[in-house]
Simulated scan of single mutants.
Amino acid sequence: MSGRILVELHDLMQAEKDLTHLMNLLKANKAHVQSIGESIGDWKGQAAEEMRSKMDQFLTVMARRIAEFEHQQVDLARYNYRMEEADRAGN
């Protein structure tokens, strides 16, 4: 090798699929936690408040992570497109 980084377009496309799958799992987990939060909405007491607080914190972090992954997915899709264009131009 001549010190160049080689990336197969197939690998980039697979990474994009894997990232989409991960985001779908995160969104499903977030929805599940939200449904649990709704089901404990009428609970009373300190333990209930602590549980709601922890769930709210978790959902906040989860939403932030999902947004980060969405941004990375857009960047990866753009990169994939540029690499496909470069590959077409090279042929």
Rank of each mutant, 00 (worst) to 15 (best):
E84P: 04
G45V: 04
A47D: 15
M55C: 03
D11G: 03
F58A: 12
K27G: 00
R78C: 05
E8C: 07
K17W: 07
D11E: 11
V74S: 12
H71T: 15
I40E: 05
H10D: 08
L9T: 08
R65C: 07
Q46F: 13
K44T: 15
R78H: 09
G37T: 05
K17I: 13
G37Q: 07
D87G: 02
D87M: 07
K44A: 15
M13W: 10
E8R: 15
F58Q: 06
M51P: 00
Q72E: 15
A28Y: 05
S39R: 07
N24L: 05
H71G: 14
S2V: 12
N29L: 03
F69Q: 02
G45I: 02
A15M: 15
D11A: 14
A28E: 14
G45P: 03
L25E: 10
F58L: 15
D56M: 10
H21M: 02
M23H: 03
L26F: 07
K27Y: 00
E38T: 09
Q14H: 05
S35C: 06
F69Y: 10
E38A: 12
M13R: 15
K30N: 04
H71Y: 15
L22P: 00
L12K: 03
L9F: 02
G41L: 13
R64W: 08
Q34M: 12
Q46Y: 11
A67R: 12
Y81H: 11
R65M: 11
R78Q: 07
Q34S: 05
A67N: 13
R65K: 10
L9N: 02
E49K: 13
N24H: 12
R78D: 09
L59H: 04
L76A: 09
A77E: 02
A77G: 06
